[in-house]
Each structure stands twice: as C-alpha cells, then as structure tokens.
Computed example of a mutant assay.
Amino acid sequence: MRADARRNYELLLAVAAEAIAAEGAGASLEQIARTAGVGSGTVRRHFPTRHSLLEAVFRRRIDTLTARAADLADHPDPRAALLEWLAAVTSFASTVRGLAEALNRDHTAGPGEPHDHCATARLTEAGAPLVSRAAPTLTPGVTITDLLALVTGIALATEHHTDPAAEATRLLSLTIAGVSPAR
C-alpha cells in the first residue's frame, strides 16, 4: 500500500472507531469519509462493505480475545478457563458498540452474501478448544457456536442498558447456570 493510501486507511479506521463507539454499527459511512477528509470512494476502496469496515475496526480487539483464549488453553480448571474467556468476550461485546451487531451479522448473512466472517470465525476457532476441554462440565451438546450466539444476544440485549457491562455480566451468570451448572 502506498504511503498516502496507508495514511488514509489508518485515518479512516480511527474516525470509524470513534463514530461506531458513538453511534453503533450503523454509523454513516459518508460522515466517516467527511470527518476523515476523504471521498466516499476512498472509504469503499478500502472497505467494500460496512461489515469489512467493522471487521477492521474490531480486529485488534478480536486479536486480544483470541490471545486470551490461547493463554487459558492450559489452565488447570477447564471450566474456569472457559468461563473466564466467555466473561471477557461478553464484557467486550457489551461495552463496545457495534461489535455484537457485527457478530450477529456473521450468523445471519445469507451464504452468497458478500462479507467476511472474520470475527465470528476467529472467536469460534479460539474458543473451541476451551469448550472441548470443558465439555464434561457442560450441558451435553453445548458448542462454541451456541455460546457465542448467547454472548451476542446478551450484548445486543444490554446495548442500551444504563450499565451494559453489569447487566451483561448478570445475564451471562444466568446463562452459565443453564449450560454449565456448578458441581
């Protein structure tokens, strides 16, 4: 990427992150372009779809969550490791506007619809070993896909709550009681 194109890309990411934090995943792409001082064509050249922009904005944060899953892979208590990771994903998804919608879009887009499945795929890949190790302590049949769908639902349900993180934590605790009762 040329130096000016790289600068535009980084500027667009920074402006988009602020806009998404303030307005959610539906932030205006045209306003993002105006604020960055570029044309809407530049936005579309770097990010052909809204979802590709969301993926880029959340990439570093998803990297942190996948690294955390890897750190927990050898935890002596597999159930505790999974629950710790799910709490981190839930906290992140419930406090970062737009992420839950991006994850939900991964689940609901049609098979021929052009977009990336990067966030959900990466979280699924990162969390699958934790679920596998914790399987004996889980309700039979629970999958990482189920758990990520529940986390996404919790984040969507708490997005406009006065304290989304606290409410998401409370709802996750209720969910955990159903999928992995303490023994």
Rank of each mutant, 00 (worst) to 15 (best):
A3V: 14
R6Q: 15
A14G: 07
V15N: 03
A17V: 06
A19E: 14
I20N: 06
A22F: 05
G24F: 00
A25T: 03
A25R: 05
E30R: 12
I32V: 15
T35Q: 12
A36H: 04
G39M: 02
G39C: 01
H46Q: 12
H46K: 04
H46V: 09
F47T: 13
F47Q: 06
L54Y: 03
R59N: 11
T64D: 15
T66P: 08
A69W: 02
D71C: 05
A73V: 01
D74Y: 08
P76S: 14
D77H: 12
D77S: 14
A87W: 01
V89Q: 10
S91H: 04
F92R: 13
F92E: 15
V96I: 10
V96P: 00
A100F: 04
E101A: 11
E101I: 08
A102C: 04
R105P: 04
H107V: 08
H107W: 08
T108R: 05
P111V: 09
P111Y: 06
H115M: 15
H117K: 11
T120H: 14
A121F: 11
S132F: 10
S132E: 14
R133E: 10
P136M: 07
T137V: 07
G141M: 10
T143G: 07
T145Y: 05
D146N: 09
L147K: 00
L148P: 00
L148E: 01
A149H: 00
V151I: 15
T152N: 02
R170G: 01
S173D: 15
G178L: 12
S180N: 08
P181S: 14
